[in-house]
């Protein structure tokens, strides 16, 4: 909950329509969602159900066709592109399925990227980067390039990059989708620890029921609507 008692994330009557030529695709059809601060929510559903679209709308990467999205009291569906960029930099940490690290930068430089948008000094940035890498257990790999890391390690760097600014919300799009089981479990352990020990609010899109079981709540999306409420841990 936010300071005034409202949910951290409030989604009301959210619609997203894509047009492909004359074809109209209603990806999201009136989604309502409340997420409290400190929750770890899994979004499950078949391919094309609108999971990633919902995640993109919650992260301000896309704008809704209709409805409202409020995160931490900010109506992000009303923000201009420039303000939305600045809002993302302050409030959102993204974790991608394919890690999306910049191959020409070392692990620490990748993690430092979001901090370049802050007024922090170089030494302060270094300190934050070291802390984030330590949290994901990669202090010894800071000078390595992505090509020198395993998939699991790359994803850890991706998570370190997502948390280095201490964002309000962590959005993870299939974070274990490209990993083997062992590495996937380690990533899930890490996300779980970030939620349980550091109070991070996390929304994770996943196909994997085992991954979803690690979250505190699971929602199922089907054909653009929230179908069922899953378990509450």
């Amino acid at each position: 909950m936010t300071e005034n008692g409202a949910a951290l994330v409030q989604v009301r009557n959210l619609h997203k329509v894509f047009k492909r030529g004359a074809e109209r695709i209603d990806v999201l059809q009136g989604v309502d969602l409340d997420l409290q601060s400190g929750e770890f929510l899994s979004l499950m559903g078949p391919s094309g159900s609108g999971k990633t679209t919902l995640l993109n709308l919650l992260g301000g990467l896309d704008t809704p066709s209709d409805g409202t999205v409020t995160v931490g009291g900010d109506r992000i569906d009303k923000l201009s592109a420039a303000r939305l960029s600045r809002w993302r930099a302050r409030h959102i940490g993204f974790v991608f399925q394919l890690y999306n690290l910049l191959p020409v930068l070392t692990a620490e430089r990748n993690v430092e990227l979001p901090l370049l948008l802050t007024p922090l000094s170089r030494s302060q940035r270094k300190k934050h980067v070291a802390t984030a890498l330590a949290m994901v257990g990669l202090s010894g790999r800071s000078k390595h390039y992505p090509r020198q890391l395993s998939g699991g390690q790359e994803q850890r760097v991706g998570i370190a990059r997502a948390i280095v600014t201490d964002p309000t919300l962590l959005l993870c799009d299939e974070p274990t989708g490209d990993l083997d089981r062992k590495s996937g479990d380690e990533i899930l352990d890490l996300l779980q620890a970030l939620n349980a020990e550091h109070g991070k609010t996390i929304i994770m899109v996943t196909h994997d029921a085992r991954a979803a079981a690690r979250s505190t709540r699971t929602l199922h999306l089907d054909k653009g609507t929230l179908a069922t409420e899953g378990h509450d841990r």
Binding site: G59, R86, L102, L113
Partner: peptide, 15 residues
């Protein structure tokens, strides 16, 4: 393309 998209995702503005 994807790297620039990542930078924008992280909050890099268009300018």
């Amino acid at each position: 393309t994807s790297e620039l998209a990542v930078l924008k995702t992280l909050g890099f503005t268009n300018p």
